[in-house]
Simulated assay, not measured.
Amino acid sequence: MGNQIKKTKESINQETKVEIPLENTFKLTNPGKFEQFCKESTQILNVETFDGFRLEVNQQMNQSFGLTHALSMGSLREEPSYTFGANYVQEKYALIGNRKGDGTVFARYIQQFGRKFLTTIYTQIAGKKQEDSEDTLGADLEYYGEDFTIQSKLKPNKAFGLSYLQSITPRFSAGMEFVYYHNMKTSAIIFASRYFTHNFIFTSSFSTFPVKHFSTNYVQKITPRVGLAAEFIYNIENGLSAMNVGYLYSLRQMRVGGQINSNGKISTLLEQMLHPLISFKLSAEIDYISNTYLFGYGLRVGPGV
């Protein structure tokens, strides 16, 4: 399973690359978490575009403690904002939190027990300006077996979830997730499967909430740093469908990603490393249906860029 806390620390300053597992043995391995069964396609298709100006500064005070600053302004979709964050990471536990300019506070505590158990406790306190938002408290418990993963999620008075993902063959895994929503007195069930080879990954899922729908995702690795992805979603209740197609091209000092969907929206993001500690971003999004054009640029400063 590896050290889950170290993975969490790496995800704070992760570099986006197209990576496809290359297991080629008959031994079953841990399939990962259920909620990440299609993480490769999500990495390519969910291009984080923005408009206006963004500035991100990472300060690594020592090996365990780091600070983050994020400033956003000039956006047509969001109000100007500033977010201050801090993270403290050790081998077996981590504490991560941030505070936004509107007063919203988010904190997460991660603790690893042995090699197989990982627990996360998180809370969010809504700011004064967010009258419609509610304070949130939740906890996740994960168990990593040799060839399966069990995860439970609990949000008091809101929702309870339980998921199970099992490796059936070295290349094929399947599982399901059950979620009960306290406030709506309803439940949801999600079935998912995943199959991969050295060159492609194919995933599929069926969900009963909020509407019954079926989705498939396909990722094709062209080279170790170039990948293509496609997603098809079919709404069983009304017969409508949607499709997304995206690409990701990662070089040592540059990353380019883009997406186009069947709703007429095209988005792209370019990130160029100017210095080992400085990178420059250009973002663009065009929605032909609503006739909107959004452009943004930003800087990211600090280790991990």
Rank of each mutant, 00 (worst) to 15 (best):
R194Y: 09
L162Y: 03
I266L: 14
Q253F: 13
T83E: 04
E35V: 09
Q36C: 12
F113R: 02
G175K: 00
M176I: 10
Y181L: 03
N24E: 12
I121Y: 15
I12C: 09
S64T: 11
T68A: 09
L251C: 09
L165S: 02
S204G: 15
K155M: 15
S193M: 14
L141A: 10
G246W: 03
E78F: 15
K39N: 12
E271M: 07
K212F: 11
R108N: 14
M176S: 11
T149Y: 01
K265E: 13
D135V: 01
Y234S: 05
G246T: 02
H213N: 14
V305K: 01
E23S: 15
K92P: 02
E23T: 10
S267W: 07
R255E: 09
G52V: 09
P80E: 09
Y109I: 01
V211P: 03
R108L: 10
L270A: 07
Y88E: 08
E142V: 02
A229L: 03
N291W: 08
L95V: 07
A159P: 08
G52Q: 03
G103I: 11
S283T: 09
V18N: 04
F178P: 05
T197Q: 00
F84M: 15
S193R: 01
V57N: 12
P210S: 05
M1F: 09
Q14N: 14
A126P: 06
Q4E: 11
A174D: 02
Q63A: 13
H182Y: 14
L228K: 08
E237A: 03
V105A: 12
A86K: 02
L269V: 03
E134C: 11
K17T: 07
L22P: 12
Y88Q: 11
Y293Q: 11
L154D: 04
E271P: 01
T68C: 05
P170S: 00
L118I: 01
Y181K: 04
S241F: 14
S11E: 13
P80G: 07
Q124I: 04
V256K: 02
G103W: 06
G103K: 10
S262W: 02
S283H: 05
I20H: 12
S215Y: 00
K116N: 15
P276W: 13
V18W: 04
V301K: 00
L270G: 07
L282N: 08
F148C: 04
F295C: 03
F209K: 03
S163T: 01
A230N: 14
P303G: 05
R108Q: 13
G97Y: 07
S215R: 13
E15R: 14
E79R: 14
R77P: 02
T25W: 01
I44M: 05
S167N: 06
Q151D: 04
R252G: 13
L277M: 05
R252P: 00
A229N: 02
E146T: 14
Y144G: 08
N263E: 12
S250V: 02
I189S: 07
N62S: 01
T268N: 14
N244C: 11
V105W: 06
S64W: 00
I12D: 09
L274R: 02
A159L: 08
G264W: 05
R171I: 15
G304T: 06
K27C: 01
F191N: 00
T83A: 11
Y249G: 06
S152H: 03
G103C: 10
M73W: 15
E19R: 09
E40G: 03
K158Q: 14
L95G: 12
K6S: 13
E10G: 03
S163N: 11
A139F: 00
L22Q: 15
Y195D: 04
Y122T: 00
F172R: 01
